[in-house]
Write a protein that binds this DNA or RNA. Structure first.
Lengths: 208, 208, 208, 208
DNA sequence: AATGAATGAGACTTCATTCAT
DNA sequence: GATGAATGAAGTCTCATTCAT
């Protein structure tokens, strides 16, 4: 028997199929992109029939969106878990940067999926915005807390988080498409530019 | 006869047709994306037959790449023209930022084209990298010159230009897809964060 | 327990489910037609599972046929009930016409179902013929009795009943698809053309 | 060469393909119905590629409608041609009946197409109405002229033409689906019931 | 009796590309 | 140089039916 609990067995089974589909879809979408991944490919690799996929997802588009959602949740929870034990906001900011870079570095394909699949499909663009906004929110919150305790100069935290996200995005892009270094290799330098430099500066301000 | 010189006349005619195709293609690709723009749409709007398009461009993919190329050239020359008369490297850096933001703000569709059309097509990704690299190079060069004359702290200019590009990219993205403000509205704040803050800081360093 | 008699209880339950299915099926088939009514629709609206439907009906086709059968029976019994108390054959003929028109007028959807669902499916065509034949038989019988008592001229009663049926069919069609008047509005004029006119004429003949 | 005129050659060629498609479609639709005729069947039998069909017709539905249109035109022109040389309205009425019955008798498949393909598709129902209305109009006009010259009693010509159409429709139906006699076999009896009987009667009226 | 997840054949449609003219 | 009718592979999606539970 696959499961030891008869009561929840059914929903476990259901989730088994659904997750198998999501796994295969995630893999193929991130490797080949939305348009270059025919449903038949997912059918073949998942051993779930076409009808089975459409039983769980109303359309290919919805399947893609579900993949994005699951992925974003996974990444977000990893980042937040990494931060949960850190008290100092500035340390937390540094930790967020490190985690984000590490996680993305370890999942090249998923990074690609997250970053490049917009395809002029409204729902994709909306989803991308949604997800990036969530990452941005985490960072903005940390920046604001750093500002509050005077670790960071008075800047527009929202814009700054946009800078962070855009920067990381671009680094991932270069890594994937221009043989750039993996994101994690930029940690020290990014820390210097994005945190040390302004922070030091803010101390200078205070010293005046 | 429309033209008096048969020799150049022909190529002028050719260029006329070719540019008409490129104009219409640019418009549709940027509005609807690569996959959502059937060649038939370009045929209809350009009044050039399908065979005509295939005479000038070997494939739809090549047409798209040509649109990207032409566009990048246009934007780059605008930026460089704006900088040509400025002597001070730091001023030039500021001017670059301003120009970049202004130009992108005035061409929402083209911004979109430049930013979102990668589509997991190798050649597109390569082209996107190429173009962004050119923008990045301009900025990197200016940063390096600023560093040389001690206007800017000793940072990895290449990484910093990546930050610039990523930031602008993200701002454009938010503008297009999340009803964010147009890029130009961020000029002052970006100038403060990306230039004033590090620059001031570098002066502080020097003052110590 | 819902019922106290296990023996009949079971079949009552069964009939309850079966009739619920038939009700929902009748409604959807008549509204949207055979091909535009997926079984899933009936599942959703009847709260009977797919397996449940297949327990009661071997196929969608059979379900449709059952709907037709039940419907025809309903209509026929209504017509015959209306005629049962009338002695004079000619009066009965008139009453049949009136009833038929009234019943169809009050059930637009069912009329549609009866009239348009042939769909090139052999079994459907056979069923439609069967049903129309039953209606035709009722009318033919009445005509023949009218002829027998010299109320009606000597015509081919079978053909005449076909004329009746075809006429009513066409009137219903126009009502449903061309915003024609409801069948009942034609009663007086139809009575004149189909009964009075020939009847009067037959009297003339006799009077000669 | 297929055609002797180079100038019109192109449009002749175009029509050749289009008509080939229509011919094959007419044949299959009338034999098997709309839903039981996959486009692939038409592709196979017409030797025109799927794309070719979609070049000439925007959808399967539109193709079907075009078949209906062409067919209706063909039949109508045959009927009107048959009537063109007859002066007396009553004779023309009789001729219309005869022609209609004959034409339908000789084209069982097309009759079926015309009569049974409604399928709960709005556009089909509209087209069916349109076509039947045209037939009805021809008959109504003739009836009205017969009434004018006192050959026919004062009845609602519009309703009477509906009776005619419905009758013929029903006879065709019985012929196709219940092994009834072909329409033409009913000519004499229909003439008696639909024309002679009322006409004679109208004379009686006048004689009074 | 009843459930509903899963199947898979088959439907319609799209569209980059070709080629005779 | 240019046309546009024609191709055909490939795509997404539907839905009657099955079967383990």
């Amino acid at each position: 028997m696959i499961h030891d609990c008869l009561l929840t067995g059914r929903s476990v089974m259901k989730d088994l199929t659904k997750n198998k589909i999501l796994d295969v879809a995630e893999n193929h979408f991130s490797k080949n992109g939305y348009y270059k991944t025919p449903l038949d490919e997912i059918v073949k690799k998942s051993n779930v029939s076409k009808g089975g996929i459409y039983f769980h997802f109303p359309s290919k588009e919805n399947l893609f969106l579900s993949v994005m959602d699951r992925l974003a949740e996974k990444l977000l929870s990893k980042i937040q878990k990494g931060n949960s034990s850190i008290d100092n906001p500035n340390e937390r900011l540094i930790s967020s940067l490190k985690n984000l870079l590490n996680i993305l570095s370890s999942q090249k394909k998923l990074s690609k999926l997250l970053i490049t699949q917009t395809n002029n499909i409204k729902s994709f663009e909306k989803k991308r915005s949604e997800i990036f906004q969530k990452f941005s929110d985490v960072i903005e919150k940390n920046i604001n807390e750093s500002i509050k305790i005077n670790e960071y100069p008075q800047v527009n935290a929202n814009l700054l988080s946009t800078i962070w996200i855009g920067t990381i995005n671009e680094i991932v892009f270069n890594w994937i498409f221009s043989n750039g270094k993996p994101p994690r290799d930029y940690f020290e330098e990014l820390k210097f530019i994005l945190i040390t430099l302004p922070t030091t500066n803010s101390r200078e301000y205070k010293n005046e």
